[in-house]
Design a protein around this nucleic acid. Sequence first.
DNA 1: TATTGTTATACTCTATAACTATA
DNA 2: TATAGTTATAGAGTATAACAATA
Lengths: 145, 145
Amino acid sequence: MTTPPKIHRPDELTFEVVDLIGAVVARYHAEYEEAAAEHTLTGAQARLLSLLSLEPLPMRKLAQRLRCEPSNVTGIVDRLESRGLVERRPDPADRRVKLAAATEEGRQVARSLRESLRFAREPLAGLSEDERLALRDLLRRMLAD
Amino acid sequence: MTTPPKIHRPDELTFEVVDLIGAVVARYHAEYEEAAAEHTLTGAQARLLSLLSLEPLPMRKLAQRLRCEPSNVTGIVDRLESRGLVERRPDPADRRVKLAAATEEGRQVARSLRESLRFAREPLAGLSEDERLALRDLLRRMLAD
DNA sequence: TATTGTTATACTCTATAACTATA
DNA sequence: TATAGTTATAGAGTATAACAATA
């Protein structure tokens, strides 16, 4: 009989946490798409509109934030613009640049979208305030880089 | 001076946690797609293959797990099957049903995919074991329903 | 009749490459 | 020449509706 080799695997606990996060991701994603659909938006449109509800951005910057190619942004902004939720403005400083900006209606939709995200109610409601605080701090540390 | 009104809004802290989870979701999603791409898989293909690496499933059940329409599953399984990662088997108990199952190669790819998910290393590595334990328990409670 | 899986269709998202207008 | 945005193209995911085989 040989003693079992002491393999240093990437950590059982870490894998378990990763799986749990995977489950949270799946649920969040599903509920985000649902909330978007209730506003007749796709997920990508909802994400872009939410970004623009904070501040106008050049098309290029939008692509970076959405982690996609600039050519995609053209179509998504096109669809939102045709619905009057977003508009393109010239950049006075550089005539090559177009600034995408949410319209007043766009900002309203973004606000409504944010509030209709069920995720805030169901899964988080089960936690006490202390637990939510603890969760907040752990998530902050995770994302701190 | 009037005392500040005691408005009971949907909870500032909860919104903050939801935003943090949104950030985690975005990062997890991006890194999952990246890991899938390294194996020449799309995200949807990777998710389906991961499900099948645990157990064979009827097409219908796969659609439910992936939260999409059954008609979509046909195409995703087609593409995985043409690469020899998945196969369709008859269900002895019900001849209408087709069981999708990962091949040996498919299970290997699923294992490699799981291990290549950077997410386990970078963001979680910053947490101590105690913190990972605390995070695990909080996530479990969140998902408990 | 109801259910399983598929096909047909249309739309959106996606990356790549080529184009235009500015810089 | 380099950059910002667009267009063209092709592949993949998605939902809807209609269909064949089986229950």
